[in-house]
Amino acid sequence: MENLDTMKEMVEASIFEVFEKMFYLFLEPDGVECPDYDAEAHVSFSGSMNGKLRLLLSEKATKVMVKNMLNLEEGDITDGDIEDCLKEAVNMACGNFLAKMDDTGRFALSISAFLKPPESVLCRSDDTISLNLTSDDGEVGVIMQVFPNGT
């Protein structure tokens, strides 16, 4: 398995690509740890490695994503739009990451899930990648846990 630093770079590149192409949100590394997030979407994967990718978003980032993706006015955005967009975002980010990690490997992705408010953000451990990203349009947190095969 790749080391966590390499994986962190690939997670970051995958997130940047998805957010730029699909949501027109241009993120930068921030360094601010665990700001208040409004919602979460996560997806699990299994294959040559197993894990879970969580995306955490501030309210501002969420609204801008939905607005940009669906071309809606802010007042027209529904809870269903938010849930759907965030689930699709984490699904794309995870698929993109896995393709970068192992283009020949076989992975299964779970159906993505949405949580508002998010689960606890604090989960530092040796098998966790954590990114705090920012933009003019709000904050995005990324937490990826990688589990040993067979768990």
Partner: peptide
Amino acid sequence: ISTEGRED
């Protein structure tokens, strides 16, 4: 049209 862009 999928996120699963791996060659296999």
